[in-house]
Design a protein around this nucleic acid. Structure first.
Lengths: 355, 355
DNA sequence: CTGGATCATGTAACCGGTTACATCAAGAAC
DNA sequence: GTTCTTGATGTAACCGGTTACATGATCCAG
């Protein structure tokens, strides 16, 4: 026996399909006893509306699409979690789409979203926003997250990578470090490029040089960079990795080589994934509260779908979370510097933020 | 200007909608020059098919639904990653749905899947499979992952939690530990219950007692359990936590209290999330290769959708990955025991598996 | 030259909802 | 009592595809 439809209910309840539809959607112009009868019949037949049919006629799907470059690591899982939280609070569902850095795939994905979702959150740090937007289904609302800047005047969310990276490097310098290395993300990735620039800016202001090793945002590349430094016997006292995973990879490699962090070399990352608190020494990082960042993206998308989109760029300035990996002087404390972007909110040590 | 439809193309190309549909779907009975012409027109008009319309008429959506209890931590992110990988290889998209342990929500979610997805992967360790299945849209293929066993004879994937937990506890005992504590997951969660039982079985066989503290699979509850043990000054030499996050929480708390792991207390977890390799000491755990587990679930779902579903229960037996946290005798090595389920595959230290 | 097979194409129904508009009954105003 | 308004309900079009079936052209065998 196939699924019950509105026509089945209409026949069974001896009313028209229009009345069934109105009754089940809570329209006011249905007599109460008729409504109750229809609801009873619907329940008896086990009626469940067919989302695609509803979507087709009402032009609303109740779904939002999320395009991310990857799913590895805690950054994306936190981002998804925040998005899902916000979406489900509004009765929306999320579908996800990983583009794996492949622009070809990305375009196909965007096309596939037509007739599936009401709007898109697109995170594509490695391709130009304008290029992607050209392939967006016509009239599909979209929020861009950390895309290369375009002319489009689209709704955008971004992380102030330059400020965050500068603040981290300034923190390293303030704690006495002078011989700095940056492990960057892949060239062409806007987050990577901006974090590199922020680090370079801060070094330039302090009249220090900065050595740069290129990574790919994944943990093994941080480990590889550390191996190079160890083998060279490089004379350095601090490493700023462009994200936490590379920082962790580097730190583990240094520890295995007998180098003490932070006494001999300080390390900091970027993103402030939950993991930073769980390793030892805990990792200094720049925090944007990833989950809440994701939630904001969805919130703005919902506004855009409703049509009251302000269309501007919202920039999040990261907060430096000082932890053990850049001690020892400040070990376990936060930098208290009211004129800076450092955080001052207390954090329970080691418990993370799992609610 | 709204979106182009098949009728627009038909008018523009001076053919019928049927021919357009056939041409664009690669049916053979279309004259080559007609097909080319239609494709050219479609391209010129920027035609993108409307997924909901296609779904409605063809009864195929190209989407699979994933229902998970939570999104915290690396377990779910790895699971999703594996599912997404398998799905996208087959040209399918994933939509996800978090039930947050709320059966009410879960039922609503299952209903909402009707007309949205071609099939479901449902992971619901805390509710009965039969109860959930009762609310599945009629005829919707589904694969159950780690659900409480039901009579349904449904397609199921499960982890052999009892065997995994027993093997871990046997490993602890084999390395000389005798005063064991288990930090369990929440009661009523089938994974938690089975892991507890596995641990108890192994202890009973060795004629050892096992103290049990109840946690909730999240990191702070592991930390809390450790705090209790520390404050009591409990005389113990090993902790088996029911998952890695609680093990990590416990380990960090012990370390902060000056207790040396593994010398004074050995610790092991369960799940073998990527993180186990990145902390220090690295964490012994029972591995099922979460991503591949997720991929298998999707692969079986695809078979079920195609109709050649064998309908059985597929059980994965975890492999014990011995790492530093249960040393020192075996530190950094794997247990070589051909008659057991211990792994013998070499693992590059510290690089993780990020491909 | 004609009947039947083959093939490209068109017509129209259908998937399962929503909703504009028509209809009709009941109550209000005159 | 007639007309106008109001409100509940029904009819049928529509969303944008797919596809069963009808049609008509072409080609071949007899």
């Amino acid at each position: 026996m196939p699924h019950a439809t509105v026509r089945d209910i209409a026949r069974e309840a001896a009313v028209s399909v229009a009345t069934v539809s109105r009754a089940l959607n809570g329209h006011s112009n249905v007599r109460p006893e008729v409504r109750e009868h229809i609801e009873a019949v619907a329940l008896r037949l086990g009626y469940v509306p067919h989302a695609a049919a509803r979507h087709l006629s009402s032009a609303k799907s109740g779904m939002i699409g999320v395009v991310v470059p990857d799913l590895h690591g805690e950054f994306f899982s936190e981002l998804l979690r925040g998005m899902d939280r916000e979406a489900s609070e509004r009765g929306l569902y999320c579908m996800m789409m990983v583009m794996h850095g492949d622009a070809q795939r990305g375009v196909a994905a965007l096309h596939a979203m037509r007739g599936r979702v009401d709007g898109l959150v697109v995170m594509a740090p490695q391709v130009s926003a304008d290029e992607l937007l050209a392939h967006l289904p016509r009239g599909m609302p979209a929020v861009l997250v950390n895309c290369a800047p375009g002319q489009s005047g689209r709704t955008e969310l971004r992380i102030d990578n330059v400020a965050g990276a500068s603040a981290l490097v300034e923190h390293l310098i303030a704690t006495g470090r002078r011989r700095l290395v940056h492990i960057s993300g892949p060239a062409g990735n806007i987050d990577a490029d901006e974090r590199l620039r922020g680090a370079q800016d801060a070094c330039a202001r302090a009249e220090l040089s900065l050595r740069v090793l290129t990574g790919d945002f994944k943990e093994p590349s941080g480990a590889a960079a550390a191996t190079i430094l160890i083998e060279e016997g490089a004379d350095i006292d601090a490493i700023f990795a462009a994200n936490d995973m590379m920082a962790i990879g580097a730190m583990m490699t240094l520890k295995r080589a007998g180098i003490v962090v932070p006494d001999q070399i300080a390390i900091c990352g970027f993103d402030d994934i939950p993991l930073t608190r769980l390793i030892s020494p805990s990792l200094t990082s720049a925090s944007i509260d990833i989950a809440s960042f994701g939630a904001s993206a969805v919130a703005r998308l919902v506004k855009a779908i409703a049509g009251d989109d302000d269309g501007g760029v919202e920039q999040r300035v990261p907060i430096v979370m000082v932890r053990e990996s850049t001690g020892p002087a400040l070990r376990g404390h936060r930098v208290q510097n009211p004129s800076s972007i450092y955080n001052e909110k207390p954090e329970q040590s080691g418990t993370g933020e799992l609610p």
